[in-house]
Design a protein around this nucleic acid. Structure first.
Ligand code: MN
Ligand code: MN
Ligand code: ZN
Ligand code: ZN
Lengths: 134, 134
DNA sequence: GCCGTGTTGAGAATGGTTATCATTACTGAT
DNA sequence: ATCAGTAATGATAACCATTCTCAACACGGC
């Protein structure tokens, strides 16, 4: 029995996500899909993104505004993000020192099964320049 | 000219927040206030928490479920949290090395006005012990 | 081609948060 | 203490992201 059927919708979401630059919300991705002619439903975009995230094909995190945002994973390895809060451009960053720090701090306090949230939000070079002009 | 008036509502929120153990949502704090006899309005709780957060008297962060949660700050200094995802117990932690790392990484990528989200979620010593027993 | 059932999507429902706006009540001035 | 000006409050509606519902649909094994 098939546990998962293949539909153009799933593939459309995967491709649209890969095509987009940085982190993007489900709503924004849905808008983008419609803009390029796809009649996909909003609920389906939500479902596909949740699946991609579960399968590890996409990163997801909560924006400071409380919106869930997604990004196609370049690498499956553990990593963190530097995100422009203006345009969404994202850089995947290594954080070796932080990894060590996190596990040390957790251990010092007797915590186990520790996971960390480490992300940096700022204005990218382009958006900084644009802001300076205005 | 008074820029900020003193009301029992603000103080009630501040005190209720200090009284609560770990991070708590605006809704939960409102319920708690009503439970203890305060007729404060929900909107006011939201406003007071937002103010406390702005003034640095309270920390706020997005729970993994996307709810904004708050905690009374023991120290006004910049710090981060080690949070038990089982019981909510929280420890405030210093992250000197991480501060340096964050600003260095942001600068290296041309980012400005960088803010970081650095939190560790795990199981506290007690919850770890409880889990081991079961 | 058929059938069984996983998938879709329009719209309703949910739930957290914010906006309205008439009313209330601080506060500085008189 | 009284008053006036206005910031703060709160019941409620509005907002908005996300999830749910369920009838219609379409994969895919046969
Ligand atoms: Mn890490
Ligand atoms: Mn920091
Ligand atoms: Zn940018
Ligand atoms: Zn615990």
């Amino acid at each position: 029995m098939a546990v998962r059927r293949n539909t153009w919708q799933r593939e459309a979401v995967r491709e649209a996500l890969e095509r987009s630059e940085g982190f993007i919300s489900a709503q924004a991705l849905h808008t983008e899909l419609h803009r390029t002619g796809s009649p996909i439903g909003l609920a389906t975009v939500y479902r596909a993104l949740a699946d991609l995230s579960t399968e590890g094909e996409a990163d997801s995190l909560q924006s400071p505004e409380g919106e869930a945002i997604y990004r196609s994973c370049a690498t499956m390895d553990h990593h963190h993000h530097l995100i422009c809060r203006q345009c969404g451009t994202t850089a995947e960053i290594e954080a070796t020192e932080v990894e060590a720090w996190a596990s040390r701090v957790a251990a010092e306090h007797g915590f186990t099964e520790a996971r960390h949230v480490v992300d940096i939000f700022g204005l990218c070079a382009d958006c900084t320049a644009a802001a300076a002009r205005a």
